[in-house]
Design a protein around this nucleic acid. Structure first.
Lengths: 351, 351
DNA sequence: ATTAGCAGTCACCCCTAGCGAGTGCTAATC
DNA sequence: GATTAGCACTCGCTAGGGGTGACTGCTAAT
């Protein structure tokens, strides 16, 4: 395998035609088919020469000697990079946006987004808001549940609501809790969740000597309540059944999407923290990311590709995307993910 | 197929042996194997006669002429009914219970329960609390999100927390909202959610003439907030990857658990409301319910069996259970589901 | 009622042969 | 020098056939 970058224009067009045809049909593409449909007016023999060179570069492969060519992951990569340069806009963005605007909390929004994305792309889709340093505390409430338990509800910017039950060393009066909440809200609202926790801890040290029981309790409750904005709850996955389409499609599929690999993927999807790790490791910058087959770090993902886009409303960065077999309709996936991502960003800015 | 009820003791024992062996091995059971292992001291020929009669009754079936017998759904049914009469207790219930007690809200609890159940049974598991008429309002809070939106948080008995964003016709002051919440809490806490809504509507009619703006607004907010305790949020499913085990297990499985049927099931599981409908249609009384293969109303469920148990803590009725191929380890599933269900009930009573 | 024995069925495995799609290579052509 | 026609070759796929073994159902003897 030599350098893959230096391709003649003709080679590139043949490769692109091959990849798109293979994506549609799912069967190895022959030299004669390419000769007829490439629009280059070449004979199949010439195409064979070209294919032989593409194969040397590791861009295409033959399942067996007397078969046509299929793209390798590297071949998909070149094709996708080429697609990304000429990106299309999603048409139905308006309807989508108004539908998304109906969402209440961020959780609702992510739920809706993942659903829309799964339907539009006909693939498994996810939407994630990673625990962000820029989400700000808006309002906190305490409700006494029973003698030893207090419910803490935290509302953050972007209508993000989390609640959590805390075991306390002693019982609280309803009135005391309300007062405590008022105190916290007055003092710490507007800070990022992280800052707020820091500030509260600092305050606890400062005022340690004051022996104001109420104050101490309030700070303790608030600190514990802010301790954890679980990342698990901010990841939404939908459309798992679409994964079967790929496996069902080409009847006796020699694709590597088998029951075994499907199971591995499902297991990965179930352990949400693994998926979160995976996603956060990819997405550094804003914008579209495509990770193809063996480019994944996790072996379980090798039979699959991922198309994701991170959005940024200034306050919070999130990621939406789809997962499908490496033989995926990248054109459509990219268009849809990009469109949805931007719609989400606009919706969040609107708040 | 004649009446299935009147079986001699010998027939019953042969059937039970056949079913349990088939469940373990996944392969048709032959007359000679049964003759050796039934403990009845019969020859294979006699067993063949018995099997022929069981087949007449529709309890067993031959995949093809020269194969052993497999149970039909009716055969499983008899076997399961027989199991239910001699139920075992789950041993590890203590550890389970303390683990479950760590859950905060009911949502947490259901999440944990479905997880525990999936792991213990090695099958896909669910936990559900249907919208209940007996849940009582404990505490309500309003938080202003932006000019036209208010977050309503409802805490109900059993640490059930729901929140919802409401679009309002006009802006509210923070102070006004707090006052409104206090009013609602003072007046309506302790009623069931349904009663509370009724009472609030009644109050709105009564006091229509009073022109107390604050009061009216409070009532309106509360009413809208209580309107919907979404059933979707109260269903938790986990362990989907276990479904693959069955399909992978017997290599080239002639079981009806194919990719196609798996896909149908996944689709059903994704549309949670369909699953909720299904479950609520089965579970009327307390206690264990087993629904086997073709006994399901939905064709998508025909290749699968369901073992569920509803629990009742006096306030609320919920359901936990597992789903697996009709060739399921019913003994284990029943024990586990029963044990977990009772543990959940105890945990809920503890609150 | 039970059983031994026997004939019959049928999935499974393996082998073979033929087909056809598609290739690589070479020699002729523009 | 690039392109192409032609040809030999490879190899997956399918169909068919024979052998094997695991069962069964039936019948006649116990």
């Amino acid at each position: 395998m030599t350098m893959a970058a230096d391709l003649t224009d003709r080679q590139r067009r043949i490769l692109a035609r091959l990849v798109s045809e293979y994506i549609e049909q799912g069967e190895p593409v022959s030299s004669s088919w390419l000769a007829e449909h490439s629009g280059l007016g070449l004979s199949s023999a010439t195409v064979r020469n070209i294919l032989a060179r593409l194969e040397e570069q590791g861009l295409v492969r033959q399942p067996h000697t007397s078969a046509g060519r299929t793209p390798t992951d590297a071949g998909y990569r070149l094709y996708v990079d080429w697609l990304l340069n000429a990106r299309r806009r999603l048409k139905s963005a308006d309807g989508l946006e108004t539908r998304l605007r109906r969402s209440g909390t961020v959780t609702d929004l992510l739920e809706n987004v993942s659903h829309e994305l799964a339907m539009a792309s006909q693939q498994i889709a996810f939407a994630m808001t990673p625990a962000s340093q820029t989400v700000r505390l808006r309002h906190i409430t305490f409700v006494s549940l029973d003698s030893r338990r207090v419910l803490v509800t935290v509302v953050a910017t972007g209508n993000q609501v989390t609640h959590k039950v805390i075991d306390t060393p002693e019982e609280y009066e309803m009135a005391a809790l309300e007062q405590a909440a008022q105190y916290i809200n007055a003092e710490f609202a507007g800070l990022t969740l992280h800052e707020a926790r820091e500030a509260i801890v600092a305050r606890m040290h400062e005022e340690r000597m004051i022996y104001d029981v109420l104050l101490t309790r309030a700070l303790q409750l608030a600190q514990t309540g802010l301790d954890e904005v679980t990342p698990e709850e901010t990841l939404h996955v939908q459309g798992a059944s679409f994964l079967f389409e790929g496996a069902l499609g080409s009847s006796v599929d020699r694709e590597h999407v088998t029951l075994e690999t499907l199971r591995a993927l499902f297991k990965l999807l179930e352990e949400k923290h693994r998926l979160v790790e995976l996603l956060t490791s990819y997405i550094e910058a804003d914008g579209l990311t495509v990770v193809i087959g063996s480019e994944h770090t996790s072996p379980d993902m090798h039979p699959f590709s991922l198309v994701a886009s991170s959005f940024n409303d200034g306050q919070r960065t999130g990621t939406v995307g789809v997962i499908g077999p490496t033989r995926m309709r990248y054109q459509r996936a990219i268009t849809v993910v990009d469109g949805v991502s931007q719609a989400v960003a606009r919706v969040l800015e609107g708040n």
